[in-house]
């Protein structure tokens, strides 16, 4: 069985948005994904990491954790912070909703995660942090 795991921990600073998505893209390379699948995952990772930086830690520097797992052609990702958490997850995931309108956020982060991944699950507790769990089947484009 094709199985692989990785863990990544880095500071919540904006230069690490590119680091995180490029590293995850490199991890999934062994699954032989299409360019579009790689772009989909990179966008979703970028959204989750940006959320952790802006909303989770509100600009303060702490750690963001990514764990990745490959099982056959399924990619599982978890992006976790130990920040302020989300009070109303349903509301946070509504398109166009942003808790920080002054920052000119588009309110489309979760919309993009859901559009580009097969499954997106948000686990959060106010004061404890937020974990975004995502799953994507790779290789649907027909060999």
């Amino acid at each position: 069985m094709n199985r692989n795991e990785m863990k990544l921990e880095f500071d919540s600073i904006s230069t690490n948005e590119a680091f995180a998505r490029v590293t995850v893209a490199a991890f999934m390379a062994q699954m032989n994904p299409s360019m579009e699948e790689v772009a989909d995952v990179k966008t979703a990772v970028s959204e989750a990491v940006t959320n952790a930086i802006i909303h989770g830690y509100e600009g303060a520097v702490h750690k963001i954790m990514i764990s990745g797992r490959i099982e056959e052609q399924q990619l599982f990702l978890e992006i976790a912070d130990q920040g302020v958490g989300i009070v109303d997850i349903k509301k946070a995931m509504e398109p166009m909703y942003t808790s920080r309108p002054e920052l000119e956020r588009s309110g489309m982060g979760f919309l993009f995660m859901e559009a580009f991944m097969d499954e997106v699950q948000v686990i959060s507790q106010p004061g404890k942090g937020t974990t975004v769990r995502m799953k994507k089947q790779i290789g649907q484009h027909g060999a």
Partner: peptide
């Protein structure tokens, strides 16, 4: 070649 929702926020703003 890469854009996420922050780019959308930039354009809308």
């Amino acid at each position: 070649v890469f854009c996420d929702s922050s780019g959308i926020g930039m354009l809308m703003g």
